[in-house]
């Protein structure tokens, strides 16, 4: 039946794509353990030496520290800035609401390279370019809206009646926030935090444009080391890539316990 054949072809394609992904990732992993490897299916000899090589030569301790610091800072700031905004946007309707939502939407839709160049120019002019602060400020630009858009549906799920009944029982705004909203929003905060974390760690364009010597994130360092002059054996690069991958995969697996895969992708039905 034509329908069956069609479906079979589709499954084959997906299978092919997945195998392709696995092949790519596995190649990097195998290469990172290879002593040397030219043109044979598998490396003749294995070693773990590249990892320590990468760690010392690429100053990975510092890079990882910087990456984690930036990531945590972005998560905390994006949530802090985005949380109240998401609350108001979920609860209220007002004249410029659509315009504001559209405005918040733009940094997520316009490619980072397009607004990254002017952003980098501006930040350099004010002297924060090339520093950790600069990277944080830049990555926050798309992450604040992301926080808002992820948190909004969670707020919409908390009935306004809960706040009203608390008010009737005499709670102040601050108490309502602390004892009702915050606990109920924990799943939302967790989801948003994880997604922002993953996005920040894997962010390239903005971190690249704003990062300098001491403020490179892991991905940016990976990129630079591929093109720097001098001896950079590909195995050590791959070792670095594996470390990056382990980090992101671990985060991904943790996130997926709380978030559905489709939530990580841009939704068309807004």
């Amino acid at each position: 039946m034509r329908g069956r054949m069609w479906r079979l072809a589709l499954y084959l394609f997906i299978l092919g794509f997945i195998l392709n992904m696995l092949g790519i990732v596995t190649h990097v992993v195998v290469s990172s353990f290879a002593k040397s490897w030219f043109g044979s299916p598998l490396p003749p000899k294995f070693t773990t030496a590249w990892f320590s090589y990468a760690w010392t030569n690429f100053d990975l301790g510092q890079v990882l520290g910087v990456t984690l610091f930036i990531a945590v800072a972005v998560v905390v700031l994006a949530l802090a800035i985005g949380f109240p905004a998401a609350y108001i946007l979920a609860r209220r309707n007002f004249r410029y609401k659509s315009a504001i939502l559209l405005l918040y939407f733009l940094p997520l839709v316009i490619p980072q390279m397009t607004y990254g160049i002017p952003l980098a120019t501006t930040l350099y002019r004010y002297g924060v370019g090339g520093s950790v602060a600069g990277v944080i400020l830049a990555v926050l630009v798309p992450m604040v809206p992301l926080a808002v858009f992820i948190l909004m549906p969670f707020f919409e799920q908390i009935s306004l009646n809960l706040e009203w009944s608390a008010q009737v029982l005499g709670a102040s705004r601050a108490q309502i926030f602390r004892r009702i909203l915050l606990p109920l929003m924990v799943p939302g905060i967790l989801t948003a935090g994880l997604l922002i974390l993953v996005n920040t760690i894997s962010n390239f364009e903005l971190a690249f444009l704003l990062g300098g010597g001491g403020s490179q994130t892991l991905v940016v360092a990976l990129f630079y080391n591929m093109f720097a002059g001098g001896v950079r054996p590909v195995y050590s690069i791959d070792a670095m890539a594996v470390m990056y991958m382990v980090m992101v995969m671990a985060l991904l697996l943790v996130s997926l316990r709380f978030v559905r895969p489709t939530q990580m992708v841009f939704r068309l039905d807004r």
């Binding site: 997906i14 997945i18 990097v28 895969p261 992708v265």
Partner: peptide, 26 residues
């Protein structure tokens, strides 16, 4: 469905650098 969509998320979250490095190798 869930497994497949999870695997499909991988390229998006791994990021372009890792992907490119892997493509170079594979």
């Amino acid at each position: 469905e869930r497994t497949i969509t999870t695997i499909l998320i991988m390229p998006i979250s791994l990021g372009v650098i890792l992907l490119s490095e892997g493509i170079l190798g594979f």
